[in-house]
Design a protein around this nucleic acid. Structure first.
Lengths: 231, 231
DNA sequence: CACGGTTGTGTTCGTTGTGTTCGCGCTCGC
DNA sequence: GCGAGCGCGAACACAACGAACACAACCGTG
């Protein structure tokens, strides 16, 4: 799939520039434009659509000079725009979050944020699009659930009890350095820990959506291996 | 918190009744009305809002007599209705799912479904509302993530013992991607497992009504093959 | 119409790797 | 030092698959 075209909607010039440059730094994403107001944004969306290069994703600030972001959101929904929306705003009000979710914001990013956080959100959205692209034309419930699951953020738990940051780093490193899938035993071997420990971390990564589980049959009869791969 | 008022939007009378009775059976949820068309739904939403008892949740079918559910969705977004929406529909088209998500559908339930599945989805939504109610007026990023994360669909009904979800997915995928019927051996080949394993899963799918058994005679003398096909 | 041949089904049982429990060592606060 | 708690791994129960085998259905032949 081609790059994701992103429209940045943000009234403050400095922040707008910052967001745009952040977008450019994330592979697979490209800035389609910057809008300084709700009116600008609506125009930009219409123009992009008419030009045949519709905006895929909107980074939407809530506090705009000519109306609330929620209003813009409702407007573009009514106009039938197809883009997804990530709220990027300083609005910490629970009610705003609730309404944004109700209006179909796929992710909600609170200002201020680090580039790492920003990147994480974009990458999560990218993962969602990848799943979507990989899904067959006709889906079943399970696949819908996985699709939505890939979109919802996984609360970044500091580290669940029973896990050490050192081991976690070692495991992720081992997993990333491998080209294909790795079984729990192989990771254990690479890291130097026991299979049990390696599995604990791998399973955690998989639950967080950072690793993918696969299955390897028929290596030598018996129960199949589960293979973990980084993504 | 009071009960969640639910509007059922469904054109087929039988299904509408069924959904409504399902809603009533889940604690914490109450039917606010049944609408048989997009027009009805819009009216019901307006009426409920004007009466001071706005609808909290809409169970939305996509195939309506007077327009697509997606259109209704865009309309009520434009009208600024605050309700959340769970798609309850037979529309298995990936594009529809994608658009529904873009329009802010919080969950997507494919017909037909069991009461257990239905209940699971409603309860998940209830969990989301509970998180929302428990959240402070002002949130931080982590809390927003948790909030959205509670909308992340949970695993569906557990498989019978002796089966792994990964293999199940592989088998269903292989079966669906084939145009015609597939024998157990062919599925085994496609998946990479043994015929025995493939058969286990195919037989389970057939028992669940998700696959159809057929017979293929005279390929080359001998016993006829059973062919499984997706539906 | 019995009978053997041929091809694929259905099941049993052993193999292999998973997932979990429980206790041990290590580090840290006191 | 000396409990407290945390992270780890040996051991174990069992889950999931595949080789092998006995049987089933169809077909051609005498």
């Amino acid at each position: 799939m081609s790059e994701v075209r992103v429209l940045v909607v943000e009234d403050e010039a400095l922040a707008a520039e910052a967001h745009a440059s952040y977008v450019d730094r994330v592979p697979g994403f490209a800035v389609a434009g910057i809008a300084r107001s709700a009116r600008d944004a609506a125009r930009a969306l219409d123009a992009a659509r008419d030009a045949g290069t519709p905006v895929d994703l909107v980074l939407l600030d809530m506090n705009l000079p000519d109306g609330h972001g929620l209003g813009l959101l409702a407007g573009l929904r009514g106009a039938g725009h197809l883009c997804d929306v990530i709220a990027v705003t300083a609005a910490r009000d629970t009610q705003v979050v609730r309404q944004a979710v109700g209006q179909g914001v796929v992710l909600y990013l609170l200002k201020p944020f680090t580039f790492a956080t920003f990147r994480a959100k974009l990458e999560q959205y990218a993962a969602y699009r990848a799943e979507l692209a990989a899904a067959p034309a006709e889906v079943v419930q399970d696949e819908v659930d996985r699709l939505l699951g890939s979109l919802r953020p996984t609360a970044t738990v500091p580290l669940p009890k029973g896990m050490s940051p050192e081991t976690m780093r070692a495991v992720t490193a081992a997993l990333r350095d491998a080209d294909g899938e790795l079984s729990a035993s192989e990771v254990a071997d690479a890291v130097g820990s026991s299979r049990v420990t390696a599995r604990r971390y791998l399973e955690h990564l998989a639950d967080q959506g950072l690793a993918a589980r696969g299955l390897r049959y028929g290596a030598s009869g018996g129960r199949p291996e589960v293979g973990y791969s980084w993504r």
